[in-house]
């Protein structure tokens, strides 16, 4: 098996819009968890709400790109407010429970064929989802038509375009997060993460701050969701499960939750490793070194490794691979 090829194509994976989408979600989660201490176990649902909002606006209302994106963001804001109102006054586990439950229910709702528009079409497309909503986005593509070779991967002009936009959004969100977390507003968030009663006793409206953080991070996840589905050109309910959410968590905790560059570094490391492990395992299966395991089972083993990584990171390196031990997020 050729390790160099495996490594190279893993690297090719890195620069895709798919990775950018996860990094966007992880930056949003950094605002939730890293800076405010909110345990959001349903980040996938925020991404999905944004993605469906965008797709439905583009397909059903024939909205132009900007309006579709704004509609997706509006859906994420509403979703955040609905989840935040009952939970943000209570102990941290309630947000965790409600977000994980809401993510599950969102999948049911998206899969269900019960919610239809007046002409009888299922608004979310049911189990098959929606597709072909990227027209308004790709029509703006300034990249000349053709095949491009990037790290051994052959990309079309449309793929290049969505990759560029995806990573530009990452840069914008990272800068926004950088400036906000260094402002007095960010100081209040960090204070809430450490001890919300203390911040309350200093006259700050803790509930409002938490809600703002939930909305802001949720909007970033919604942008991530839009990038994800514009890249894949379909939005299907099965994608937005717990695996999606906890891949985001692993990305965030790998890089370090309390830094702005953490999610980006985490995303780079995670997806390189993820693709590389897949290639290596597939190679081992091909030469019958993995017993009776099949290729689909390799994907499952990879998820087991994600789960293990999440556990081990939280236990042994809560500050992330690059974080400073002194700044470890959890100290009781």
């Amino acid at each position: 098996m050729d390790l160099i090829v495996a490594l190279q194509s893993s690297f090719g994976e890195l620069i895709t819009a798919g990775t950018a989408a996860f990094v966007l979600c992880a930056i949003g989660l950094a605002i939730h968890f890293g800076f405010t201490g909110l345990l959001n176990f349903g980040q996938a649902a925020f991404a999905a709400v944004g993605a469906y909002g965008y797709a439905i606006a583009a397909l059903d209302f024939k909205a132009p790109l900007v309006l579709s994106v704004l509609f997706g963001l509006l859906c994420a804001v509403i979703f955040a407010v609905l989840l935040g109102i009952p939970t943000l006054r209570l102990r941290a586990d309630y947000l965790a429970i409600v977000t994980i439950a809401a993510a599950q229910v969102f999948k049911f709702v998206a899969t269900s064929s019960a919610i239809t528009d007046p002409s009888g079409n299922v608004i979310t497309g049911g189990a098959e989802g929606l597709s072909e909503f990227g027209g308004t986005f790709y029509s703006l593509n300034p990249v000349p038509a053709g095949e491009y070779q990037v790290f051994g991967n052959s990309l079309t002009q449309d793929q290049i375009w969505v990759d560029i936009v995806g990573w530009l959004l990452v840069v914008v969100c990272a800068l926004l997060t950088y400036f906000l977390t260094r402002s007095p507003w960010g100081r209040a968030l960090k204070g809430i993460r450490e001890d919300e009663d203390a911040v309350r006793s200093l006259g700050k409206n803790v509930y409002l701050y938490k809600m703002q953080a939930l909305i802001l991070g949720g909007c970033m996840a919604a942008l991530g969701g839009m990038v994800f589905v514009i890249n894949s050109q379909t939005v299907q309910p099965t994608v937005w499960g717990t695996n999606f959410t906890f891949t985001i968590w692993t990305v965030l905790l790998l890089g370090g939750a309390t830094t702005v560059l953490g999610p980006i570094a985490g995303g780079v490391v995670f997806f390189t490793l993820f693709a590389f492990i897949q290639k290596v395992l597939e190679g081992l299966v091909a030469i019958h070194w993995m017993g009776s395991l099949t290729i689909p089972q390799v994907g499952q083993i990879r998820l087991i490794l994600v789960g293990l990584a999440l556990m081990l990171l939280v236990i042994f390196r809560p500050q992330g691979l690059f974080g400073n031990k002194k700044e470890t997020l959890f100290n009781g």
Partner: peptide, 10 residues
């Protein structure tokens, strides 16, 4: 809680 989520995936 986060560890338990990781464990549940495993």
């Amino acid at each position: 809680m986060i560890v338990s989520i990781g464990f549940s995936i495993v």
